[in-house]
Simulated scan of single mutants.
Amino acid sequence: MNGMANTNTENNECGLLPYPIILAANKGEPEAMKIVVQHYGSYVASLSMRKLRDERGNTYWGIDEDVRDRLRSKLMQSVLAFKV
């Protein structure tokens, strides 16, 4: 996987991931999967936003960690199940 970690996906979040990274992630390559999860990180976070309450009963918007973990898991499952 040489060079994949250096692929600049942070500034290309709205764009597509390079095909070699998708192929490597599909084959279970951990570093490639990490790049895929990072690429969609802010989108997953935005889908995970919920109204939460603190210990004093104040309501605020925050990330529901259970939802974020489930979405990340589903993303990884989908990448592994993708028919190339």
Score class of each variant (00 low, 15 high):
66 D>I: 08
2 N>W: 02
64 D>P: 00
58 N>V: 06
64 D>Y: 09
65 E>R: 13
71 L>K: 01
5 A>E: 15
37 V>S: 07
59 T>G: 05
47 L>A: 01
79 V>Q: 06
75 L>Y: 04
12 N>L: 11
33 M>L: 15
73 S>P: 01
67 V>W: 04
82 F>P: 00
13 E>Q: 14
74 K>F: 04
36 V>S: 03
16 L>W: 01
10 E>W: 10
68 R>K: 15
24 A>V: 08
42 S>K: 13
70 R>T: 06
47 L>T: 00
51 K>E: 12
55 E>T: 10
57 G>M: 11
23 L>E: 07
72 R>M: 08
78 S>W: 09
36 V>M: 11
18 P>M: 13
70 R>G: 02
83 K>W: 06
11 N>Q: 15
34 K>C: 02
79 V>P: 03
9 T>A: 08
47 L>S: 02
62 G>F: 02
49 M>G: 03
58 N>I: 07
4 M>R: 05
27 K>N: 13
5 A>I: 12
67 V>A: 04
79 V>E: 05
17 L>G: 06
41 G>Y: 11
25 A>T: 08
84 V>F: 11
21 I>Y: 09
39 H>A: 00
12 N>V: 12
34 K>F: 02
70 R>N: 07
35 I>R: 06
15 G>D: 13
77 Q>P: 01
38 Q>K: 14
60 Y>K: 08
30 P>A: 03
40 Y>L: 10
78 S>E: 13
37 V>C: 04
77 Q>H: 01
71 L>R: 06
72 R>V: 12
71 L>A: 13
57 G>W: 13
79 V>W: 09
83 K>V: 13
50 R>H: 12
3 G>D: 12
34 K>P: 00
40 Y>R: 03
71 L>W: 00
42 S>L: 05
14 C>I: 02
33 M>R: 13
64 D>N: 15
32 A>R: 03
53 R>P: 00
11 N>K: 14
58 N>W: 01
78 S>Y: 10
23 L>G: 01
70 R>P: 00
65 E>P: 00
52 L>Q: 14
45 A>G: 06
84 V>E: 05
4 M>K: 03
22 I>L: 15
76 M>N: 06
24 A>I: 04
73 S>E: 14
56 R>H: 14
16 L>M: 02
21 I>L: 08
77 Q>W: 03
45 A>Y: 04
25 A>I: 02
72 R>Q: 15
49 M>C: 01
69 D>M: 14
19 Y>W: 13
18 P>I: 07
48 S>C: 02
49 M>K: 10
60 Y>M: 11
9 T>E: 08
58 N>T: 04
37 V>F: 03
49 M>D: 00
1 M>D: 10
4 M>G: 08
40 Y>G: 04
